[in-house]
Nucleic acid binder design. Sequence first.
DNA 1: TTTTTATTGCTAAATTTTTTTCAAAATTTT
DNA 2: AAAATTTTGAAAAAAATTTAGCAATAAAAA
Lengths: 219, 219
Amino acid sequence: MKSENNKSVPLVVIKRLPRYYRYLGELLKQGVTRISSKHLSEKMGVTASQIRQDLNCFGGFGQQGYGYKIENLYHEIGEILGLSRGYRTIIIGAGNLGHALANHSNFEKRGFHLVGIFDNNSELVGSRINQIPVSHIDTIEDFFREKGADIAILALPKHSVKEVVDRLVALGIKGLWNFSYTDIDVPDDVAVENVHLSDSLMTLSYKITEGNTASDLDA
Amino acid sequence: MKSENNKSVPLVVIKRLPRYYRYLGELLKQGVTRISSKHLSEKMGVTASQIRQDLNCFGGFGQQGYGYKIENLYHEIGEILGLSRGYRTIIIGAGNLGHALANHSNFEKRGFHLVGIFDNNSELVGSRINQIPVSHIDTIEDFFREKGADIAILALPKHSVKEVVDRLVALGIKGLWNFSYTDIDVPDDVAVENVHLSDSLMTLSYKITEGNTASDLDA
DNA sequence: TTTTTATTGCTAAATTTTTTTCAAAATTTT
DNA sequence: AAAATTTTGAAAAAAATTTAGCAATAAAAA
């Protein structure tokens, strides 16, 4: 996680990039070609300084007196995030959540190609979700040998997670997107991003309780 | 958002509470009755100092030389998060995601009672998901008048979000759990918690790209 | 009972993150 | 072409967050 000048970029900065990317994408669609950090900051409800500071972690994309060329900036952020590389993605768990994620077409657009769905319920095996056949989890080793995968989406109950994760790690998975209600333990070279929905809902509960609703940009 | 000593508690602290709550709940189930910040910190991969500091934002739950009584601490954190109050919760959007969330039984356990599901697709109206009937979005005003709701889960496409949110706000919704791929603008007294799945997936992409996988506790 | 050990809660230090400030540079206006 | 305006990138300052240190205290052991 080193930037151009070999200083590591804090994760808080990284986590803001997708939001910049989203806003820039919208502007691009609207036909806007340039924007200043000040304008963007007003749109997004953050400080202009933060935007400039964040972008500068990766090099000077802007131009004094002019601002940023949106198309260029959009592309650069995409590169930083690694969105052009394309990922072979599998879903583990064909329950309600796995089903919903399999049908979420946005991911395909960003280069996350769904190439397999796995479940341990034999009754589901053979069916298709969004064109992709559901396979038995015990065929995962064969699947990797023949086709490989980069990212696994963990949409299975927590009691099965540990075993499955160990198998995926042994097979050389690169990233895990973890929706299960448990934390997972993997070697340093496997990336993990947790989506703990219950945690998020509890945070909402707190915000309601305490009337703390000041601009929710951190969420 | 004031703590006992009337100093506001930073949101970063709040966001860690659900994870403590989860671990303490597991220990409780295992029959463990006490724990020190040191032990808990080792289990969770954070510093003991951080745990003590976090808990102290709300008052001294521990005892010197002994540690924390798990049952007590678990309960206290639940209270801080407002989990005992019970929320009437509705889902807007009965697509794949709304469907999956409606079937997610964990939420009920934490006091988020699903009382309604709404969609603008007349074909879905009348069907039931997890016992709850799907109603047309245009009946939402009647629903509020008769029954009320505290939290709305936004699982609808972004182009419909703004209009729906404005209506919900006018009806006095207290919290919005936003899964749509857009940021929403509401008055200060309405709480918002965003779950931007695409953003999270892009963060995972970055972590894979940069080999940045050092303990993912911040995710 | 006394001593030793464990552990909190608080304070202070260190670190990280955000905001402020401004010279330098490019654009836009006159 | 010159002057005024805009805006970045970087440095410095301020604020927030995390970690370290330790006195006070309770529990456990001797």
